[in-house]
Design a protein around this nucleic acid. Structure first.
Length: 740
DNA sequence: AACCTTGGTGTTTTT
DNA sequence: CACCAAGGTT
């Protein structure tokens, strides 16, 4: 039971200010979830009915946590309160009124993978060159447009060239396909709800009236459509409380717009702003170091975290020779600190900018027999076998779902090949009917032989039987029946391949998910609700990994919201972190900085920052330069662990003044060297240059060394670049390569 | 339909 | 280097 007495002054103020717009700027570890649940409790105590409250989060996990903690705090049932993600709330709203928007209630929710598949087929249908129109890029463009609620006709009229006009075409056909198959992507869930509200004032009024108190968590992560949705709901009464931290906005590339939080006071002139700056997680040294990094950003609200937790531990900085040494150092340190401080493995987290960094760290952890888990993008629900079964289930709920139909029509194999497929496709198109109906009428499809017709009608009968069984079977029973009748289970059970056994295990896991759903589902909830829930679920919502005592390996992005006693922030190198694509872009650089801030503020007690002298990427060794973020941390806060490298000029150099220029990752030219030379590359590149050597520079290309001046880290070379002229270069910055 | 070769690519991923 | 998608081969 959490007591109000446990709240500080600002938290209390934030809990009790309920009658107007409120922006809570909640710094990392400042207890914002606690504020939110106390606010819920406070509202209930004021006599507000639970169903009048709408609390929105971004993740299922956050919603679940809020629900659990609020239940524990208030002691009464809050099941009538809407505590959910944006998407789940929109599904609920759309189930009721989507028919006015041209879709049917039993719509399918397609995920990113499904979207890409549709886009790929659209590109193909349009005969566009997939080199110039890559699926991934188009998918990003369409996603971005939808995030900003730019619809097809707006996109078309904004198109400036052939490329953009073609994108508009793909976008249009993509939307057509979704409409035809009664499917919505994640963006549609939000956008259609906004449109529903905008085009049907009566519907909007109903929800405005119902939700007298709005709360939005992680407001810095809202995109334009979510922003509009919130504004619509809050319009009449303005009882809107948003919580967030502009310093932790790291999802702009997903459409999140940090200006939503920065402009809150402008959007709601009556707004009150409360800053939560007392931190209950980290030591003051960690907070100060993090502040020095984040305060370099221009687009942010001024705030500085403080804590009562003082410790003499400094932020530890380590420079290692390469990524293997870095991994080794981390692993040794985990063992040492764990013993010294009596910590669990799960108190340690290793964070990285890109997943590819994890492999080397894993190797060392395995060597040392240290248990670990990787939090990665590999998702259970993206496994082919799981998608197959879900596709079957989707067809049963939404017979218009041609995407799913196409997926399962020949899975398991039933001798329906490409030719048959295109005949079915053509027939369905001409008749303006979904594939499902086309199967029923298979006899009328031209150019099919009797055997094929029978296969198709057999499949239809199978699906139709299953569809009828929905009425009286639970989701688990139906899935079992499906696995049996389709022969999917037999197929895998009969196989000796290990990957098929793995698939079988995954299907077993899927049955656990259905069983869990059946257990807790409420009256009136069935397969349709199950599918929506699953579509909006992520892998991290699954499983019990947190209970296990393991070192956590994850990307900086996935670390948001978590905390660990000891955090290792790895790969603090220009081009890696900040990532190369952000180097020439101030906006993106600010986001990288926020990412760094997020990473640093995950640490409760000890924070390690590490970088290397050189790192292998794509099988090649590149020299590394310490991240500019390191230069922002005052020396007094850092314990710089000197490491015994011979290469003095490369290490312990830069964090005095301005950020170093970016040296690697940027060059379009890769270092050409035979395999023999690779291991020696790092040393060679900068250190062993002599007068008369031919060298290569990223800007001025080839040149000849005229003279060498200075020594140690201040060594400079005078180089005559062909057709450019003489340049004096500090070796530690220049990134010169020797040309053979 | 399974298998192989080739070429291109290479950030992060709450729903 | 390691992965994927696409295309060709058997």
């Amino acid at each position: 039971m959490e007591l109000s007495a446990a709240l500080n002054e600002q938290q209390l103020a934030a809990v009790e200010y309920c009658e107007g717009p409120l922006l809570i700027l909640a710094g990392a570890g400042s207890g914002k979830t606690r504020v939110l649940i106390h606010r819920i409790a406070w509202l209930l105590r004021q006599g507000v009915a639970p169903e009048r409250i709408l609390a929105i989060t971004f993740t299922n996990k956050a919603a679940q946590e809020m629900r659990d903690r609020a239940t524990a705090l208030v002691g009464v049932s809050i099941s009538r309160m809407w505590i959910s993600t944006f998407h789940a709330a929109c599904v609920r709203i759309l189930r009721r009124d989507i028919e006015t928007m041209g879709y049917r209630t039993n719509f399918t929710i397609v995920d990113a993978g499904d979207s890409e598949r549709i886009i790929r087929s659209v590109i193909k249908d349009l005969n566009l060159d997939d080199k110039r129109y890559p699926t991934g890029e188009l998918s990003t463009l369409i996603d971005r447009a939808k995030n900003d609620m730019i619809d097809v006709s707006a996109y078309r009229s904004l198109a400036k060239d052939t490329f953009e006009r073609n994108v508009a075409l793909v976008y249009a056909l993509y939307q057509d396909q979704l409409l035809k198959t009664n499917s919505l992507d994640f963006n549609d869930l939000i956008n259609l709800t906004v449109r529903l509200f905008e085009e049907h004032p009566d519907v909007l009024a109903r929800y405005q009236d119902q939700f007298q108190y709005l709360m939005v968590d992680e407001y810095q992560d809202t995109n334009h459509s979510q922003y509009r949705l919130v504004r619509l709901l809050a319009a009449p009464h303005q009882r809107i409380c948003v919580v967030g931290d502009d310093d932790q906005g790291i999802y702009s590339w997903r459409g999140a717009d940090i200006s939503n939080i920065l402009n809150f006071a402008r959007d709601y002139p009556q707004a009150r702003v409360i800053k939560l700056e007392q931190n209950y997680r980290s030591t003051q040294n960690i907070l100060d170091a993090a502040w020095h990094v984040i305060s370099k950003n221009l687009s942010r609200t001024e705030k500085r975290l403080w804590t009562e937790r003082h410790s003499s531990d400094l932020v530890i900085l380590q420079c290692l020779q390469n990524e293997h040494a870095e991994a080794q150092a981390i692993v040794l340190e985990i063992e040492r600190i764990r013993a010294e401080r009596h910590l669990k493995y799960s108190d340690f987290a290793v964070l990285y900018r890109v997943h590819s960094q994890s492999r080397v760290i894993e190797e060392k952890l395995i060597q040392r027999r240290i248990p670990y888990t990787i939090y990665s993008g590999l998702r259970f629900f993206e496994r082919a076998e799981v998608k197959d079964v879900l596709a079957y289930l989707r067809v049963l709920v939404n017979p218009y779902d041609d995407q799913s139909m196409r997926r399962i029509i020949n899975v398991p194999r039933r001798g329906i090949g490409d030719t048959t497929l295109s005949h079915v496709q053509e027939f369905a198109q001409q008749m303006q009917i979904p594939w499902y109906v086309a199967l029923e009428m298979a006899e009328e499809i031209p150019n099919l032989n009797n055997r094929t017709v029978r296969r198709l009608t057999d499949l239809w009968r199978l699906l139709d039987d299953l569809r009828k069984m929905q009425e009286y079977l639970s989701v688990s029973e139906l899935t079992e029946e499906l696995l049996h009748r389709t022969g999917y289970r037999d197929l895998l059970e009969g196989s000796l391949k290990t990957e098929d056994q793995e698939r079988l295990a995954n299907l077993g896991e899927l049955l656990n998910v259905t069983a869990e759903y059946d257990r807790r589902r409420e009256e009136g909830q069935g397969l349709m609700e199950f599918l929506a829930e699953v579509a909006l679920l992520s892998s991290s919502d699954l499983g019990d990994e947190e209970l296990l005592d393991r070192v956590m390996l994850m990307s900086l992005h996935s670390a948001k919201g978590l905390e660990f006693s000891v955090v290792f922030l790895t790969g603090m190198e220009e081009g890696l972190f900040p990532f190369k694509r952000a180097l020439d872009n101030d906006r993106e650089l600010e986001e990288e900085r926020r990412l760094c801030y997020v990473g640093m503020t995950r640490a409760k007690d000890l924070l390690y920052l590490s970088y290397t002298e050189g790192r292998a990427m794509y099988g090649q060794m590149f020299p590394a330069i310490p991240s500019r973020f390191l230069a922002d941390i005052p020396k007094e806060l850092i314990y710089d662990r000197k490491q015994p490298s011979r290469q003095k000029a490369l290490q312990a150099t830069t964090w005095s003044s301005s950020p170093p220029p970016s040296l690697f990752y940027e060059s379009s030219r890769t270092i050409t060297a035979d395999k023999e030379a690779i291991p020696r590359m790092v040393g060679q590149m900068i250190i062993t240059i002599n007068v008369g050597d031919r060298v290569w520079h990223r800007n001025w290309e080839e040149g000849t060394v005229l003279s060498i001046k200075g020594s140690g880290e201040d060594t400079m070379a005078e180089v005559e670049f062909h057709g450019v002229g003489k340049k004096l270069l500090l070796l530690k910055f220049a990134g010169l390569e020797k040309v053979e």
